[in-house]
Structure formats: structure tokens, C-alpha cells
């Protein structure tokens, strides 16, 4: 479970996140939806422990800066940052060892799944942005985290990888994991979200739950444009 409670993040006078609070439960896919500059990446980075903030963020009840919380977290940044001279295989091996993952076969499974087996000897600097993003995803999933956060994960991926990633989201949910995805592309999330927080100017402007069997008068798209443009 991921709990964000009263988180405020300021860059000098600019308030990027203004008293944000939300919870994503186990086995839920939460979406942070919002236009560019809404503060999605800021809260994602705060959850990953990469920013200082006011408020509390907990991963399975543990402070996000604690080592126990770090063990439970998987983070896929918007822009992949790989080591130039390490190969795909070495990146995964490095993460496997850094997180002390005993099961060596996890690496092979991830390489296979994201079609990276034939690229395992390629160095970070030799990979396209999409390939780097795949490696980044594999690294984040290597230690079987209970909370996985994705910052704009679809950007730069090919259709196959997008399809595979959507399957990963669903599998993570089915395995009882907490998934949080930040995106501004509404059409890419239509089929797998459980809760959407629409962000505007650093705040959550609306929250919508996807409850099967219930009919809602407004679609996600309608609600989004109503909030961001002030019209349906």
C-alpha cells in the first residue's frame, strides 16, 4: 500500500505539490493524470525518495526514506539513466546483486519478456531511448517490489513494449502489488486503471474510481477536459 499524506513540495516560491493526499491500495492500479506541469513527476520523485518534501509518504506503512521501504519500491523514471559502458545484462546483474536477489532466473525471464535477450551484450550508450526504457523497467521489477511507480512509462516505447507493459500492470495488480502510474495520455490507461487522480496546479482536482458494473455519467476524458479546460 502507498500512502501519501499532506505532501507539499516547493521550488523556491513555486508550489509543485500542494498538500497532496491519496492512497493506493494493494492490488490497485492508480493513475496520476494531468497536463504537463501539473506536478505528477514531482510527487513520483518524492515517493521514490529523490526529493525533500513536507508531509509523509509511506510504503506498506514504512517511511519512504527507510531501507525497508526502498526494498519494497520499484521506480521507473521518465528519462532512463543507464550507465554508458555497462551492458544490458550487467545492468540487471548489478541491480540483482545490489538488492541481493537470490533467484538468478528472474533476470532471464525479464530479458526474455521485454525482448532484450539479443541485446544483452549492448552497452547503455548503444541503446535507443525505447530500449533504455525497457532496461529501466526490468531493473525496477528485478527485486519483486510490492509498490511500483512509473513516471510516463509509455514514452518512447514501441507498440509491442506498450502491450507488454500493460500486461505487466495487470499482472502486478493480480499479484496484489500497488501500482502508481503518472501520465498525460488518457487513451493509454483506459483499460486497466482502478483509481485516477486528476492533477492540476500541484493539487488533486478530482478522483475517479473504476468500479466494474457501475455506470458513471462522465467518461474519464470528459472529466479530464472539464477540469483542465473548464468544459466538457
Amino acid at each position: 500500500m502507498l500512502t501519501v499524506n499532506g505532501v507539499t513540495k516547493k521550488y523556491k516560491k513555486f508550489v509543485a505539490n500542494d498538500n497532496l493526499s491519496f492512497t493506493i491500495g494493494d492490488g490497485e492500479v492508480g493513475i496520476l493524470l494531468g497536463p504537463n506541469g501539473a506536478g505528477k513527476s514531482t510527487i513520483i520523485k518524492s515517493i521514490a525518495g529523490l526529493l525533500k518534501y513536507q508531509g509523509t509518504i509511506e510504503i506498506d506503512g514504512l517511511d519512504t526514506h527507510s531501507l525497508e521501504a526502498k526494498r519494497k519500491l520499484g521506480y521507473i523514471p521518465e528519462i532512463p539513466a543507464l550507465y554508458d559502458t555497462l551492458t544490458v545484462d550487467e545492468h540487471l546483474e548489478f541491480i540483482r546483486r545490489a538488492y541481493k536477489v537470490e533467484d538468478v532466473s528472474v533476470k532471464e525471464k525479464l530479458l526474455e519478456r521485454f525482448e532484450l535477450s539479443d541485446k544483452r551484450k549492448k552497452m547503455g550508450k548503444e541503446l535507443s531511448k525505447g530500449m533504455q526504457q525497457k532496461v529501466s523497467i526490468c531493473c525496477a521489477l528485478m527485486h519483486d517490489p510490492s509498490v511500483v511507480i512509473f513516471d510516463e512509462p509509455m514514452v518512447g516505447l514501441d507498440p509491442h513494449a506498450i502491450k507488454e507493459l500493460k500486461l505487466v500492470f495487470q499482472e502486478l495488480r493480480d499479484a496484489g502489488k500497488t501500482v502508481l502510474i503518472s501520465t498525460h495520455m488518457i487513451d493509454t490507461i483506459e483499460d486497466y486503471w482502478d483509481v485516477v487522480h486528476i492533477m492540476m496546479n500541484g493539487k488533486i482536482a478530482a478522483t475517479k474510481h473504476n468500479i466494474p458494473g457501475t455506470s458513471d455519467d462522465k467518461s474519464l476524458e470528459q472529466l479530464f477536459f472539464e477540469i483542465t479546460e473548464g468544459k466538457a
Partner: peptide, 11 residues
């Protein structure tokens, strides 16, 4: 300056 190092669960 890279994010990996902050995520690794070590002191």
C-alpha cells in the same frame, strides 16, 4: 547524481 544509488536499500 543518478537515481539508482538512492533507491538501493543500503545506508
Amino acid at each position: 547524481t543518478k537515481h539508482y544509488i538512492y533507491l538501493i536499500p543500503e545506508t
